[in-house]
Computed example of a mutant assay.
Amino acid sequence: MAKKKQNEQYLAQNRKARFNYAISETFEAGISLTGTEIKSVRASQITISDGFITIHDGNALLTNVHIASYAQGNQFNVDPLRTRQLLLHKREIATLAKAAQEQGVTIVPLKVYLKHGFAKILIGIGRGKKKYDKRTDIKKRDQDRELARRFKN
């Protein structure tokens, strides 16, 4: 009996990441969250567009990601912009640390989703694009749209 593929449903997506950065490699990581934070994440109350990942003392840290306070959380709510630890293997953290030391390279969150009940985040190693690279992407996207429009009719 074949397993059914889960439908890809993301709780949050960083749409500008692939436009602003040339993503070379991606990793899937778990996020260390408190009880009220995971409830907010499951309700899609998370914003990752301004977030980035730093490596500090052998730990990958998710910085500047906003997880809204849970409405019924009371005193258990924590700071919405606190730094959260990412759960990765040591060799993956070493790869990220090596990449982050290069000039012009940033580690950015791409997508947040649930996998087997756990919150996961897809992170990517990205090199900042120049303005002319972005223009080429826009031009290619417009050409693809125009082709699809012509073949539709």
Rank of each mutant, 00 (worst) to 15 (best):
Y132H: 14
I107F: 07
I121K: 10
K115V: 02
K130L: 14
P109G: 02
D133K: 06
V105W: 09
I123E: 01
Q103H: 08
K111L: 04
G126Q: 10
A100S: 15
V105A: 05
G126P: 11
A119T: 14
R135F: 11
R135G: 00
K129E: 07
A119Q: 07
L110N: 07
K129L: 13
Q103C: 00
K134V: 13
G104N: 09
Y132Q: 14
R127I: 06
A100F: 12
E102L: 12
Q101G: 08
A119H: 06
I107D: 05
G104Q: 04
E102H: 09
F118D: 05
V105M: 04
G124L: 06
I121W: 13
T106R: 15
V105C: 03
K120A: 06
K131F: 14
I107L: 02
F118C: 02
A99K: 12
L110H: 09
Y113A: 01
I125Y: 10
Q101N: 14
G117F: 09
R135P: 00
K134G: 03
I123V: 12
I125F: 07
K131C: 01
A119N: 03
I107C: 02
F118Q: 11
L114Y: 07
A99Q: 13
E102Y: 05
K115D: 03
Y113N: 01
V112D: 03
L122G: 00
L122W: 13
G117L: 06
L114G: 01
K134E: 13
Y113T: 00
F118R: 14
P109H: 10
L114A: 02
A100L: 15
L110V: 05
Y113W: 12
V112T: 01
